[in-house]
Simulated assay, not measured.
Amino acid sequence: MRQLLVECSDPGLVITLAEEFENVLRQIDFPRAQALHGQLSNLARELGPECEEAWQGFQLEVPNDDGHPPAFGKRAAASRTSGVEEEHLKQLLAQAAERGLGQFELRKTVLLPQDGPAPETREQYVRDLADSIRWATWEELGIFQSPVELPEAMAAHRHQLIDEYTGDVLRARACFPAVGHLWIRDSLKQLEQALEEVNTRAEAVMSYELARLDPAEVGPTERIHWAALAARLGKEVEKWCLAAEESLAYIYQRAALVWLLWTECRGWGPARPFLEKCLQTLIEEAKTIYTADGLAALRLLYDDLRRPPWGELDSLLAEERAEAEDENTTVGD
């Protein structure tokens, strides 16, 4: 996947605001991001032709290059990518910090959009914010796999059940004299029956442990694993979701947790109403804290979660129909 991203992206330099994402959502809306670009341009001009030349070509990137907005990118084709240029840029960013514009970071990247900087719009910026909230699931919640791994104790228990119920079946089928399609069909049938028994017993223990276990007995990351299991089973969802939230200081982190649990239960089952209510509560809380764009990003995340799987397909089909109608109109003319 990363190889595909690299092949479909451009290398270059990127400057990002080295602030906690919470501060971005609270303070930096789209006009402010545009203003930052203008302020950096003015400062580069003030510092002399070398800094101005080094800064020339940087644009507000929406989407950004795998960090969080705001980000300013410059493609390698427009850059000398030399140590001298980078030194001038570091001088610019040091002055920006000294004058109170913000703390910025400079780095190389290979993930700038290939078509070059798109015309920046508020809608693009809000989408970038919403996507960054989702990616916080991986970077800040300590979750690095989807679906989320089972709690260690539950994974070990199901592994034990697998050994107990499927081992004999597989060994017996290995010795069975039949061959070909009949052997495969009968083996799969017996294995399926064994796995159904494993699943029934494992789910019973998981449900029992979700109800029995005190969240205070497990660490913050492990609570998220239990919360994901609760969402999948539709058991003790409120208990484990609230426990997982306790270590999350910011609204967007709790929204990322809701997104994670929603994807774990695929937006179905007993967990859905509770998760919807959680995100609605977070949106209400953000009204007095986040910028209008930060609030819009949370609402966009909410809309994305509630959109049915075929929603994007419908929009794509509508676009194709519109394009076909345009082509027919052109031919008719």
Score class of each variant (00 low, 15 high):
residue 70 P to I: 03
residue 304 D to T: 13
residue 152 E to I: 06
residue 256 A to E: 00
residue 174 A to E: 10
residue 120 E to P: 15
residue 214 D to T: 05
residue 51 C to K: 02
residue 195 L to C: 11
residue 134 R to P: 00
residue 45 R to I: 09
residue 234 G to Q: 05
residue 48 G to L: 11
residue 150 L to S: 01
residue 237 V to N: 04
residue 267 G to W: 09
residue 11 P to W: 01
residue 106 L to A: 00
residue 285 E to R: 15
residue 51 C to A: 14
residue 312 E to V: 06
residue 119 P to H: 07
residue 138 W to F: 11
residue 325 E to S: 10
residue 46 E to Q: 15
residue 90 K to W: 09
residue 35 A to L: 09
residue 261 L to A: 01
residue 220 P to W: 08
residue 49 P to F: 03
residue 284 E to Y: 09
residue 274 F to A: 04
residue 295 L to S: 04
residue 253 Q to S: 06
residue 260 L to Y: 05
residue 129 L to W: 02
residue 82 S to L: 07
residue 201 R to W: 00
residue 96 A to R: 06
residue 271 A to K: 04
residue 107 R to E: 07
residue 253 Q to F: 03
residue 321 R to V: 06
residue 221 T to H: 11
residue 227 A to E: 05
residue 324 A to Y: 06
residue 124 Q to T: 03
residue 242 L to D: 11
residue 276 E to F: 03
residue 324 A to K: 09
residue 179 V to Q: 13
residue 76 A to M: 12
residue 257 L to T: 02
residue 115 D to Y: 09
residue 182 L to A: 13
residue 32 R to Y: 00
residue 113 P to V: 04
residue 82 S to N: 08
residue 252 Y to I: 03
residue 9 S to M: 02
residue 195 L to S: 09
residue 211 A to I: 07
residue 183 W to K: 15
residue 189 K to S: 14
residue 115 D to M: 13
residue 319 E to F: 10
residue 71 A to W: 05
residue 80 R to N: 12
residue 289 I to N: 02
residue 173 R to C: 11
residue 302 Y to W: 13
residue 231 A to E: 08
residue 38 G to V: 04
residue 87 E to P: 01
residue 221 T to C: 13
residue 274 F to T: 07
residue 326 D to G: 09
residue 281 T to N: 12
residue 8 C to F: 12
residue 206 M to F: 14
residue 192 E to Q: 13
residue 216 A to T: 06
residue 164 E to T: 09
residue 265 C to G: 12
residue 311 G to E: 03
residue 39 Q to E: 15
residue 162 I to W: 10
residue 223 R to I: 06
residue 206 M to H: 13
residue 237 V to Q: 04
residue 175 C to H: 13
residue 179 V to E: 14
residue 7 E to C: 11
residue 208 Y to I: 01
residue 66 D to C: 11
residue 9 S to I: 04
residue 286 A to I: 00
residue 183 W to F: 05
residue 4 L to F: 10
residue 105 E to A: 15
residue 75 R to T: 15
residue 305 L to D: 04
residue 180 G to S: 01
residue 47 L to S: 07
residue 174 A to I: 08
residue 173 R to D: 13
residue 94 A to L: 14
residue 28 I to R: 03
residue 226 W to L: 04
residue 25 L to R: 00
residue 47 L to D: 06
residue 240 W to P: 00
residue 239 K to E: 10
residue 90 K to Y: 07
residue 317 L to N: 12
residue 259 W to C: 13
